[in-house]
């Protein structure tokens, strides 16, 4: 065999082999499963049912080791008071950890504010948590890939890899992220991943006495959350940022941001 022929046939063989090997790669079942998993976690908040007791916040802090008295929290409840003249007053003291037991609205530096009952048109509570967006801004901006999205849609943080630059905190349009006061890394709601991945419920949903919070698999058409999304009118927070949030709200008012 001449050298030229040898080289020629080697090139043909390598080219042919690489095509067939890459074809094998195409049908890797794991990749297909990861691209189209039969599991996508989503969350449904029924604001009509929330009474502002703050049990969810308390449960979350204890379950997820967020220092109880630190002024950060993975989930919180906001109170909205809409006055007859159209003004909106909001507050969320300590993220509503202790529940709303007073009519005084905490306006931080501006002090406490009481709106007389006769001036109030309506008032309601809105629980908030990480939206586990389909296209999360926080994952996009993390410079080291310490925050990432699992195949089932949950956005998680690798505490051993986060450098603590705070870019994800800045990038999140929902303000769900903060620096963990003990770990000194970015932190946020994980949908209680350690519980739901073992078939359990999230701490906040379990603690809610009225069923205002529910986690479910959006890929399962029989899941109560999916059924609610299909049959009722739901809203999401700040969809103008294109993050495609996966926490859905029943009874969302236009004042809620």
């Amino acid at each position: 065999m001449k050298r030229r022929e040898f080289l020629k046939s080697t090139a043909v063989f390598v080219a042919g082999a690489s095509i067939s090997v890459s074809a094998l790669d195409f049908i890797d079942p794991k990749e297909i499963l990861a691209a189209n998993p039969d599991l996508r976690w989503g969350f449904l908040v029924d604001t009509h049912k929330c009474v502002g007791c703050g049990f969810c916040v308390k449960a979350c802090k204890i379950e997820n080791d967020i220092p109880y008295d630190a002024n950060v929290t993975r989930t919180w409840v906001e109170r909205y008071v809409i006055k007859k003249d159209g003004d909106v007053v909001m507050d969320s003291p300590k993220g509503a950890r202790d529940g709303y037991t007073s009519k005084l609205l905490d306006q931080n530096h501006s002090g406490m504010l009481q709106v007389p009952d006769e001036e109030i048109a309506q008032a309601f509570f809105v629980p908030k948590l990480c939206n586990h967006c389909a296209t999360p801004a926080c994952v996009q901006v993390c410079p080291v890939g310490a925050t990432y999205q699992a195949a089932d849609g949950v956005v998680l943080i690798d505490r051993t890899w986060c450098i603590g630059c705070g870019y994800c905190i800045m990038g999140c349009p929902y303000g769900v992220r903060f620096f963990h006061p003990v770990e000194h890394v970015a932190d946020k709601c994980t949908f209680c991943y350690h519980r739901i991945s073992k078939g359990g419920n999230t701490a906040c949903a379990q603690a809610c006495p009225n069923g205002a919070r529910r986690i479910g698999n959006l890929k399962d058409p029989n899941d109560p959350v999916t059924v609610a999304l299909m049959t009722q009118r739901v809203g999401v927070l700040r969809d103008e940022y294109g993050t495609k949030p996966q926490v859905f709200y029943l009874g969302l008012n236009k004042e809620v941001r």
Binding site: D69, N71, T73, S92, N108, S110, V176, F178
Partner: peptide, 18 residues
């Protein structure tokens, strides 16, 4: 209990907890 940022931030009116 001291959160990063708390030492130099003064909040006014409605600001999200984090």
């Amino acid at each position: 209990m001291i959160v990063h940022g708390e030492a130099w931030t003064v909040k006014d009116l409605f600001v999200l907890p984090n």
